[in-house]
Amino acid sequence: MSGAKSGAEPRLVTPGEVIETSLEMRSGVGITYENNQYISTRIGWLREHNDTLSVDPIQGSYMPRSGDLVIGFIEAVRNNLWFAEINGAFNGLLPMSLAPWKVEFGAARQHMDIGDVIIARVQEVDESHSVVLTMKGVGLRKLKNGCVESLGVQLLDKFRGENNENIRNMASKSDTRIVVGENGRIWIDGEPEGIQSVRELIQFTKHCGHHKDFMAKFQEKINKTRGEH
């Protein structure tokens, strides 16, 4: 049994843990209210914010939300649409009308084929979790260079840093371009040395991202990073 106090040391909770609270709270992410008790449903850090009790999860798969920028792999092509694998439970569907080109019916394959890598945005997610993607918008495109790495979705914010500060530093130190997809995929483009150094930073985040002193160590590592200069 444990209480959630704001301002106190963050506490790690596990599924089934009863959270004691004297106040009337709302149950947020990772909390369920059953039999007059607040119960944690995920492993993660307990958080009490305003009047909501929630768990910041530290593990879990990507759950698409509309507006998410994602990096996908084309998995199938039909006459008038593409299916893209986006690291979620379901493939994203990209209709011809939301492609960045004017596509004739039946000519979808001429623009994008199986194995192509795209930056897209989630247009909508319906109740049955079907995902519609769009490639109409700034920066949404088929990728022709660079490479894609993966990172757990719970670690993306730490990787990016406040206001994308880490990304900007990494990109300038390594002379690369970096795009972080909300679906746990990161696109890096540049010279091989630069790509390699960003890849090492991703590996470091994978292994140490949950440590309390991660951010300081990570920023130190970024500052030591050098690309091909």
């Binding site: 599924p15 089934g16 492993i43 879990g60």
Partner: peptide, 11 residues
């Protein structure tokens, strides 16, 4: 299951 981050009401 818990390690995978799948929500559960108890172990």
């Amino acid at each position: 299951l818990a390690d995978a981050g799948i929500p559960m009401r108890d172990l």
